[in-house]
């Protein structure tokens, strides 16, 4: 693939998945209008979900999902050893995602409830960066393919890439969405990192914070506004815990 007349290296990419729904991997095959171009500038050597070719020697690993079993710990360590750059793809990989809600329960009891007297091996859910060092994190449930494309451009051509520092509210305003607080809904938009184009408030749902905290947020101010509007502590805490991105803050 030539860019400004210069032949660039197509980086060898491996895509891997752990505990999650595979929705983030699916995004890689979406955004059909640029799919062919996207595929022409990378060399996918390993992507079990769509290919039987099991090439090794990937330099960039895109990793979806959280870690919740011993074999996953070993597999992510192996991937870390092989890859020059390890990218955590999606909220499960970055924060543990919804899987983390499992950690609120006693695992033996959970096992009994689901598998009766034949329990299956399981561990408390951890994000990738709690097990191995991660170079780049692309949050979102699911990730935005446009953001993945920008990160890949950054890795190949060193095109500058920065996540927006501002919160979801800004993108929400750009879409002229009526603020859901006005309709009596809770929204984490004021404290959540933008970059998704605010699809949830646009559907009247409010933001659930899948992308984790924004860089510049006034958490205290948010809490007092939410309380003032009559949302209960339970409601606020549940919302902050949903995707696991606000641990340590909330």
């Amino acid at each position: 693939m030539k860019y400004l007349g210069i032949e660039s290296q197509r980086p060898k990419i491996g895509v891997f998945d752990f505990t999650g729904c595979e929705g983030c991997q699916l995004q890689l095959a979406n955004k059909e209008e640029t799919l062919a171009a996207f595929l022409s500038c990378i060399d996918v050597v390993c992507f079990r979900e769509i290919s039987s070719a099991s090439g090794e020697g990937f330099t960039i690993a895109l990793v979806e999902g959280a870690i919740s079993r011993e074999d996953e710990v070993e597999r992510i360590r192996w991937i870390r050893e092989q890859a020059e750059v390890l990218v955590a793809l999606g909220s499960c990989a970055c924060f543990g995602g919804v899987n983390r809600l499992k950690n609120d329960f006693d695992l033996d009891e959970a096992n009994r409830e689901v598998y009766g007297d034949q329990p299956k091996p399981t561990l408390p859910v951890r994000a990738i960066n709690e097990v191995v060092p991660v170079d780049l994190e692309i949050p979102g449930c699911p990730v935005s393919k446009a953001e993945v494309e920008r990160v890949v451009q950054h890795l190949i051509w060193e095109v500058p890439f920065r996540f927006p520092a501002y919160p979801v509210c800004l993108e929400c305003k750009q879409r002229y969405t009526v603020c859901v607080f006005e309709m009596g809904e809770l929204c984490l938009g004021p404290i959540t990192r933008a970059g998704c184009d605010a699809p949830c408030p646009a559907a009247g749902l409010g933001c659930w914070g899948c992308r984790g905290p924004a860089q510049e947020t006034n958490f205290e101010e948010f809490l007092s506004v939410a309380r003032e509007r009559g949302f209960s502590e339970d409601e606020i805490v549940d919302r902050l815990a949903f995707f696991g991105g606000f641990r340590g803050i909330a």
Binding site: F18, R69, E72, V98, F105, V114, T122, E235, F242
Partner: peptide, 17 residues
């Protein structure tokens, strides 16, 4: 595949989530 325990995670959740 690693088991995920959604049936347990549903417990206590509000109908909106």
């Amino acid at each position: 595949e690693t088991p995920r325990f959604f049936e347990v995670m549903f417990k206590g959740k509000d109908f909106r989530s």
